[in-house]
């Protein structure tokens, strides 16, 4: 079952067709979403009424185009802000974590490492509600004790960022740790041997080497945050990020403006994905 071992033409043919069908299965829903963004109809469904750019550019209802839909644009803005904060916070903590687990030795390290991984197996909805419950508990307590409402602990952007930060950090830690594990620590020793302090050695030698991983992890964090739904749903306040805003509209009955947003998302994600692939495959030093 490898190319060097002969197998029947029939087997190979069937296998290739199967893999082909799989890729059709993967691609179809996305293609359909993209195509119907250009349908000149009030519904993203058959029949095809001819192509139009109205769902992107039209300025008036009922075919209000994406670029003039204040609500959607605003929710994109919210998602963007949330994603930026989440990415930065996750990257900083994940870098610390990577150094902690790859470089330091301390009692209980294995247990803490397992705990670090647990967000991967906590369903997003539960992570969301647990943070919601805990932050409310603290906020209620503060209100009782000091008669002061800790506004940021109520559902809203801060909580959304915290909730996403909770599990995205784990993923970023795995990406950065993998790179740090491959890093030849004799480079750091060489830097110290040439007169650098430990911190200077990390700054001048280790971090530049981690740069591709940091960029890759940053892109992954940004996309995961931008696209997150389950955790966000539980923590969202009045400012809805894009996924929540789209979900609300989808429940009401969708118009092709959602296809337009989706297409935009796909293009943006695709570009980010390409950038990340580029940085991941880049050889160090080049």
């Amino acid at each position: 079952m490898i190319p060097t071992i002969s197998s029947s033409l029939y087997f190979r043919g069937t296998y290739a067709v199967y893999v082909g069908l799989f890729f059709i299965f993967l691609i179809t829903p996305l293609t359909v979403v993209g195509i119907f963004a250009f349908n000149d109809s009030m519904f993203p469904s058959m029949p095809w009424n001819g192509g139009t750019l109205a769902w992107f550019l039209n300025e008036t209802e009922p075919q209000l185009g994406l670029f003039h839909d204040e609500d959607l644009l605003e929710s994109i803005g919210v998602s963007f802000v949330v994603a930026c904060f989440t990415t930065i916070a996750s990257l900083v903590l994940a870098t610390c974590n990577a150094f902690l687990f790859e470089r330091e030795q301390f009692p209980g390290k294995n247990l803490l490492y397992i705990l670090m991984l647990t967000p991967l197996v906590i369903p997003g909805v539960i992570l969301g509600v647990s943070i919601l419950a805990f932050s409310s508990t603290i906020a209620n307590w503060a209100e009782m004790q000091f008669d002061y409402d800790l506004e940021f602990l109520r559902p809203g952007i801060t909580l959304v960022v915290l909730g996403q930060f909770a599990f995205i950090t784990t993923i970023a830690t795995l990406v950065i740790s993998a790179r740090l594990r491959k890093f030849d620590s004799s480079l750091e020793e060489a830097a110290m041997n040439l007169g650098a302090t430990r911190i200077a050695a990390v700054m001048t030698v280790t971090l530049p080497d981690l740069k591709p991983a940091l960029i890759g992890a940053g892109i992954v964090c940004f996309l995961m945050s931008f696209e997150n739904f389950n955790t966000t749903l539980m923590l969202v306040g009045s400012d809805a990020p894009l996924t929540i805003a789209m979900f609300d509209r989808l429940k009401e009955g969708s118009t092709p403006v959602l296809n337009a947003v989706s297409l935009l998302l796909m293009v943006a994600s695709g570009v980010l994905a390409l950038i990340s692939v580029f940085f991941q495959s880049e050889k160090p030093g080049s």
């Binding site: 993967l26 179809t28 996924t243 959602l258 989706s262 998302l265």
Partner: peptide, 25 residues
């Protein structure tokens, strides 16, 4: 294989809705 997953789960599900619904493809 990876490309579909750079796109939001919402969009992916939306694609299936367009395919499977009564007036769908």
């Amino acid at each position: 294989c990876l490309i579909p997953f750079w796109v939001s789960e919402l969009v992916r599900t939306y694609g299936w809705m367009i395919l499977l619904r009564e007036t769908g493809l």
